[in-house]
């Protein structure tokens, strides 16, 4: 499992850079950043090297932020690798709320996703031979 930080941002100028500035000042390194946005607001999802430090820095700066655990896997760099894992999850009835990729080591892609049944997801993925982080 990987800890993800979700930050609520109003859609106005400078909010995203303010958020990144807080993390820079706390000396937190970003592994990934993804944004789900609407016309009026966005939710920034971050995976960082030190999530506790990042969370306390963001909250101290007034950002509405929280930690959510994601199931994460390392996906081999070959065609169809992700499809196999997703088919296994789908066949077992595991729903995915959202998913995105983030940087892994040695050219691997890492995939993190949120599900309402993380233990089951981990078990299914391990049974399918996936490398769960």
């Amino acid at each position: 499992m990987v800890k993800q930080i979700a930050v609520f941002l109003e859609n106005r100028e400078g909010r995203l850079s303010d958020c990144c500035k807080v993390l820079k000042q706390a000396d937190v390194n970003l592994n990934s950043l993804s944004i789900a946005d609407t016309k009026e607001f966005g939710i920034v999802r971050l995976i960082v090297d030190d999530s506790d430090k990042a969370l306390s820095a963001l909250q101290a700066a007034g950002f509405l932020s929280s930690v959510v655990e994601l199931v994460a896997i390392e996906v081999p760099d070959k065609a169809g690798a992700l499809a196999d894992e997703l088919i296994a999850l789908s066949d077992s009835g595991v729903n995915i709320e959202y998913m995105y990729s983030f940087a892994g080591k040695d050219g691997h892609a890492n995939i993190g996703f949120k599900t309402s049944m993380p233990e089951k997801a981990v078990a299914v993925l391990q049974a399918a031979g996936a490398k769960v982080l």
């Binding site: 609520f8 939710i43 509405l64 959510v68």
Partner: peptide, 15 residues
Amino acid sequence: ELSPNVKLDEVAHVE
């Protein structure tokens, strides 16, 4: 204002 205690990681939840 959203409450500082609310946990939001999905757009649908805010909506």
